Simulated scan of single mutants.
Amino acid sequence: MEKLLPIIKVEDLKFAYGKSEVLVLKGISLEINQGDFIAILGQNGSGKSTLVRHFNGLLQPTSGRVLIKGMNTRSTPVSKLAATVGYVFQNPDHQIFCASVWEEITFGPKNLGLPKDTIEANAKEAIKIMELEGKEQRHPHSLSRGERQRLAIATVLAIKPDVIILDEPTGGQDKSRTEKLMKLLQELNAKGHTIIIITHDIELAAEYAKRILVTFDGTLLLDGDPRAVFLEKEKLHQTFLKVPDIFAFSFGLGMARPALSPEEFVEEFKRSTGA
């Protein structure tokens, strides 16, 4: 069987802002496949956001290259990349600029030249998913911080890109909405969308991600299955990241398969004890 090309391929990516000689990214190489659910972890300044902004052409490599579905980001318009890679900023106000919620959500699909009926259907679906019904004619800046975050996500959902990147997606959301959002991302992932989240919440990453990347000082320090990553104690110590409590607890109990969530712990405990 012919091997599928990675949806994102990063080759020896180095990057420095402006004319600075100080590299923010120091030679990162990785491949991301269709259907991955990735959490990127690392301290502030480790290069997380700088890395993912290369995935839709917002930043261009100082050296090396980034390929999206085989398209070199250096020579592909950002508008074309946006049809494949949707990006939700950490601060929603950095991507909200229209006069109404409806205009905001339909802007991207219109810009891509989608048919009118598709634009309307996609927008209505995104509004329903992100619980913004009844707010279509509101000015975005009249919404709460959490609502603006959901609006920013809705603008990406309306495009239906193959890859959805979210920078600290649960900011401004309470526990209930956080769980709904993460369940939505799981559903989108199950339908084939590649999901990439940048987060400081290692418990969240453990519970939902299938793969974890850890950045450190502009390098890719770790890349793998969550359990494999969390067992790299010495490397994690460099980054000041602490493994999830439930993982540490179940590992300490000697579980052959340390748990990544409370639900998983209960299941594994029942299995190991025959309860």
Rank of each mutant, 00 (worst) to 15 (best):
E2G: 03
L5F: 06
P6G: 07
I8L: 15
E11M: 05
L13S: 01
G18H: 07
G18E: 14
S20W: 11
S20L: 11
L23C: 06
K26P: 07
E31W: 02
I38N: 14
I38V: 15
I38C: 14
I40S: 11
Q43E: 13
G45Y: 10
L51E: 06
F55G: 09
N56F: 08
N56S: 07
P61N: 06
T62Y: 03
G70D: 13
K80H: 10
K80Q: 13
A83M: 15
T84P: 01
T84E: 15
V88E: 07
N91H: 11
H94K: 14
F97I: 11
S100P: 05
W102Q: 11
E103M: 09
G113Y: 04
L114D: 10
P115K: 07
K116Y: 12
N122A: 12
P140C: 02
E147R: 13
A152E: 07
L157K: 05
I159V: 13
K160P: 04
P161F: 02
D162L: 08
V163Y: 06
I164D: 01
P169S: 10
G172R: 13
G172S: 14
D174K: 06
K175Q: 11
K180N: 15
L181S: 11
K183P: 01
K191G: 06
G192F: 02
H193P: 06
I195D: 06
I198E: 09
A205T: 02
A209V: 02
L221E: 14
L231G: 00
E234A: 06
K235A: 15
T239P: 04
F251Q: 12
G252P: 03
L253G: 08
A259T: 03
F265S: 01
T273L: 14
